[in-house]
Design a protein around this nucleic acid. Sequence first.
DNA 1: TTGAAAGCGCTAACAA
DNA 2: TTGTTAGCGCTTTCAA
Lengths: 348, 348
Amino acid sequence: MRSAAERAHRTATLRDVAALAGVSIRTVSNVVNGSVPVRESTRTRVAEAIERLDYHPNVAARRLRSGRTQVIGLALPDVTVPYFRELADAVLAAAWRRRMSVVVVQTQGDLERERSVPSSPQLRHVDGIILAAVSLTEEDFRAMSGTAPLVLASASVRSDAIDSVTADTFAAGRCVAQHLLATGRRRPAVIRPGDTQWPAEYDGRYRGFMAGLADAGITLPESHIVSTDVVAFGSDAGALRTLRLDLPEVDALFALGDRLALGALRTLHAAGRRVPEDLAVVGFGNIEQSAYSYPTLTTVDPGGQAIAEQAVALIADRVERTAAEKVPPRRSTVDFRLIERESTRVTG
Amino acid sequence: MRSAAERAHRTATLRDVAALAGVSIRTVSNVVNGSVPVRESTRTRVAEAIERLDYHPNVAARRLRSGRTQVIGLALPDVTVPYFRELADAVLAAAWRRRMSVVVVQTQGDLERERSVPSSPQLRHVDGIILAAVSLTEEDFRAMSGTAPLVLASASVRSDAIDSVTADTFAAGRCVAQHLLATGRRRPAVIRPGDTQWPAEYDGRYRGFMAGLADAGITLPESHIVSTDVVAFGSDAGALRTLRLDLPEVDALFALGDRLALGALRTLHAAGRRVPEDLAVVGFGNIEQSAYSYPTLTTVDPGGQAIAEQAVALIADRVERTAAEKVPPRRSTVDFRLIERESTRVTG
DNA sequence: TTGAAAGCGCTAACAA
DNA sequence: TTGTTAGCGCTTTCAA
């Protein structure tokens, strides 16, 4: 049985092209792959035959021989979560530019599923895998090293055992603290996701923020560290209660994620507290909506675009080199940017 | 050179397993595929050998022989757009359950890119393609029929030429009208995306709504049909201006998409018009945020989950049947649901 | 029920 | 610069 995509008209093979062009299949292969010089006149003749027969290389055969697929895997928690959705978008775009296909697999951030990514049957035929892990630890990464080319691409999770590209979320968190302090805020609070799900994802920015405050001699009281559930948080009543933002002395709020920040904005508005006049708010992620909220949200752009771009480049590079070449794990850090918008604007 | 995923330890092949089990490769193949009965004792021996060698079938070789890949393609405008993101999520989940991989390709809703989907190199090796088209017309679909198994899976776009699964958006639009009328509203307005980009996507629900109003003898004046840009709409100032919702007589608003509706909600709130007291608002899409807005949004769930599930089932079925079997195009309609929330609640 | 063997279409080593 | 050819690992026909 022929491939599904090829049923219609029996597809042309190298052999057909060779016959039509009056050369050997070797020559056709050379023309197609451009790996070996071919005389111009021959090339033209072959090209014509290819054109005429609408020849397309059979990927499976090529793969069977060469081991390359031009397919990469992208494993992430869930395309529904803003940060990962935007990572997916960027990876897809970067891969497209390089004429590679992307197989997407969702892990739901589940530890077991993340662990089994490199051995997943769904990813068995890929050249390399971009893994946006949120639950794995260094131990897991060590176990994974030495398998297929693998690049870690979360904003926060990095490793010494395998390639990783991340944002320096610690520095970003510290930068948020500095920004808040620089605009005259002195009594900040933090909102973080309560479900300890995906702790690694939020840890860096949290510690960075605390460090930034500590630099200025500020320590947060327990009551100014609020934990809440990201999703439930969306419902305003719940958020208001959770937030206890009746705390009147708080003059700045760092929400560890944009969704959290957006929820806070709504809640504060409903509660009659003015942003940024009474209270500055900063998020993290620079998701699309953050530019359209009321007021628009100051946030950190963790450089998802750049992370994606680099991750794809790293994979491509690893794949390029043959098994022989041992390249030690590389760690690459992408620049974050603090996007200043209305929610922290200095007023009157 | 070996496949990337297989470099580590030279992977076992059928031959290795056969040697270890003391049978021919034919028998091992039979055990692996379960296609032909195998004596129980033989089966056990082979299974042990497989286990011991950690044998995994080589997908490329299998594909080269059989033409199947267990990979399907998903082509959609952009994983960043709520409806398509949720479609992607559902397709990924459905495919995962069937142990299939999904290659995702973004078209940006661009006509040319949608047209070239079936012949795209990125999708050359898939068994079938789920296409969420927004710009193609019946003519394009006809041109595509007869190539790889292909299923159309937008909420609105259907075809006579190829398999399609959609929601009955016309009925849904009409249902919205009925709901609004049933709750006592008499002077509705519509907001639709102004950029005529992806017209097909919005056409059904729009016409359905109009038909529903017509049933009750209502015709909308021009001034009550507002066009606006989905994204710019997010900025409140822009929206307010665009909306001209100073129109004081309007008591109901049908926004053809949830994002539009959510924007309207914010705008109305800022303008001091109360929802649902002064004005009812209905969206379309049932995107996650619609459940968390203030007030929560009444909207239509076009059954994206079911669409995805069915699309995957249709593809799997098409792939199952060999080329010989001609199955005529099938059209499948999925149930929509009107999700009643606060924004249309009857008050007082 | 099992074995032997013929390719699927391609890449690349070896020859010319 | 080009031709010849040996497989890559698997499925499947034909025989036994």
